[in-house]
Each structure stands twice: as C-alpha cells, then as structure tokens.
Design a protein around this nucleic acid. Sequence first.
DNA 1: GCGCGTAGTATACTTTGTATTCTACGAGTG
DNA 2: CACTCGTAGAATACAAAGTATACTACGCGC
Lengths: 108, 108
Amino acid sequence: MAKLGEFELLVLLSILRQKDAPYANRVREDLEANADRRVTRGALYRTLDRLTEKGFLAWELDPSEVPERGGHPMRRLLVTEDGLAAVRQARDVLATFLDGVDLLPGET
Amino acid sequence: MAKLGEFELLVLLSILRQKDAPYANRVREDLEANADRRVTRGALYRTLDRLTEKGFLAWELDPSEVPERGGHPMRRLLVTEDGLAAVRQARDVLATFLDGVDLLPGET
DNA sequence: GCGCGTAGTATACTTTGTATTCTACGAGTG
DNA sequence: CACTCGTAGAATACAAAGTATACTACGCGC
C-alpha cells in the first residue's frame, strides 16, 4: 500500500474531522487554522487528486448543499476504507516513536 | 522555521530514541524495524544532510566508539534545540488532528 | 451586465524522499 | 600479505510529494 506523506495524512485527518461538512474549503480552513500552515487551493486539490488515485479518498457531487454565492457544485469528500487503514497505520507508527522519547516541555 | 517532512520527523524521533548510540545505522535499523519502511543508506544520509542544513541536527565524529569492522569514523548525531522545537510542533499539530477524530478500531 | 466571492482545474516548479553506485578502512582468512 | 567481507559514509541522479500561480465557471447583488 502506498504510503502517506505528511500533508496527505493531515488532509485525511481533517476530512474526518469535518463530520457534517467534508468539503475542500472547510478542510483548507481547518488546516490553516489548526496546523499553522498556509494552504493554497491548488495545493490542496493536487493532494486530493493524489489521494484519490491511491484509493484513499472518494467524492460525490453534493447537489443539496447549494453554495451561497455560486461556483461549482461542491465535492463531498469521503475517506475510503483503505484511506482509514492508512491513517491508522501512520498514527500507530507515529505513536510508537513519539512514545519512545520524552521531548516533554511541550511549550514552544 | 522550515517545516518537517514526514520522514524527517521520523528520523529526528528515532535519533532521540537512541539515547546512548545515536548513529546513522542504528537509526536506520530502528526505522526499518519499527516504521515498517525500507530505508537505504543513501536515503537516510540525504535526509540527515537536509536536516543539518535546516539547523535541526548537528553531529560530531565519535572517536571512542570504534567500529568493529572498519569503515569511517561514526557520526554521533545530535538534535539541536531548533530540531527539538520543530519536533514538538509537529507532534502538537498531529495530536490536535488525531484527537479530533475517532478512527478507533485500531486493528488493521 | 459587471464585479465580487466561492468552487474547482491546469500547469509549472520546488522540496522531500529514494535508489544506485562509489570510496574508505579494519578484521579475519587463505 | 593481499583479498574479500562487513561497516560507515559521500555523490549522483531520479521519483514522489508539496506548493504557487494563474486560469475557468457560476451565482448574487449592485
């Protein structure tokens, strides 16, 4: 199974967090706000494409959620089973390594 | 501050785990064993170089730890303060996102 | 009907990650 | 003693992941 880059992982996690509104721009806002990282739309869509090619992500056009100010129909993002598995594995590896070390003070 | 890629993070964490023997090949073995990932020597050294350029890593030649079967003197790897800070930040971000989601079943 | 704001696409480019191949050197073995 | 084996490291070229820039599309409201 293809492995996840750092950003890819964050994107999948963010999608999973958006329980009721898994749309690209929600994810973008989430990442900018909580991961302290600039995310341009191009960057995000590129990543979504890659995740889709890998089979970690799927989407459907959402006809009900009409955007307030026009634009394309929004894509409702869905993490696949494979995607979930990949996230879990990445989490486990990270947990292992983070666990084995105390870089405690935590405050930057 | 430059950001950490996924592999870079793992490498720093692994170095921190090798409390008494922070050498490149220990790290390599650690990653292969615990991160379920093939790591060639070239790949690792390239990453170490990049981390050094970013100021996250330093090293000194270790004269005391003589290798058992020849080779170059080993480099004792040292994570810098900046490196530690970068790791902490990455950890915090990951924690935030992993926390907000329950992909629990955990078993693959 | 024109501009603004949102959603998505295309493309070019940079940074990160990986494989391959080379040098160096000590220990053991013939 | 020279040769090959195992370890450590360097150089190079290349692939994949990440990012920026600049586009199209469309609806709303002035």
